[in-house]
């Protein structure tokens, strides 16, 4: 099974898997230009994520190892999410009862999210988990799982 890793912590790897190390790589910001939708369909004006896009869309599973920042996803991870719109079409459908962008690709990977649990309270954690579930649901992933790791397991 082809797997990809996106990590903000941990240093392990899987043989033959692509790793995007967010602790090392600062993602260029989405400029909001919509070039990826209406000038070069499916392609971002930046090229720092070209390998990521390819591996994301061709993997069966993507595992995320995330830190919690100010009670939410980090700015760098949020920038990565913003940059994922080229993987979808600008057209909207409402078949699920709400607005969703159409798929550009036939299939999207399953998602497994590990996060380093530093929340101040259960409410913060719920917002974080709900947000990630929501995001990957909108990204058309069918199976999404979240696993919180406690403070003392951080390497």
């Amino acid at each position: 099974m082809k797997t990809m890793i996106v990590r903000e912590y941990h240093d392990f790897f899987l043989p033959d898997s692509y790793i995007l190390d967010l602790s090392d790589q600062k993602i260029k910001g989405c400029t909001g230009c919509w070039t990826c939708w209406w000038k070069t369909p499916g392609r971002c004006i930046h090229h720092d994520l070209d390998f990521f896009y390819h591996h994301y869309i061709t993997s069966e599973k993507v595992s995320f190892y995330l830190t919690v920042s100010q009670g939410f996803v980090s700015g760098n991870l949020k920038t990565l999410f913003d940059r994922m719109i080229p993987l979808f079409l600008p057209y909207t459908n409402y078949a699920s009862g709400e607005s969703m962008h159409d798929k550009r690709y036939d299939r999207y990977p399953d998602i497994e999210i590990h996060y380093y649990d530093t929340f101040l309270d259960a409410a913060e954690k719920k917002i974080f988990e709900d947000y990630l579930q929501r995001t990957f649901y909108q990204f058309h992933s069918k199976n999404i799982s979240l696993i919180g790791e406690m403070r003392d397991v951080r390497p």
């Binding site: 910001g29 100010q70 949020k78 913003d82 995001t135």
Partner: peptide, 19 residues
Amino acid sequence: MPLYIHAMPGIVMKLFEKL
């Protein structure tokens, strides 16, 4: 701000991280 992927744009979260 605009809504980007159901939340704030990355640049706004980078500001929040410093607050």
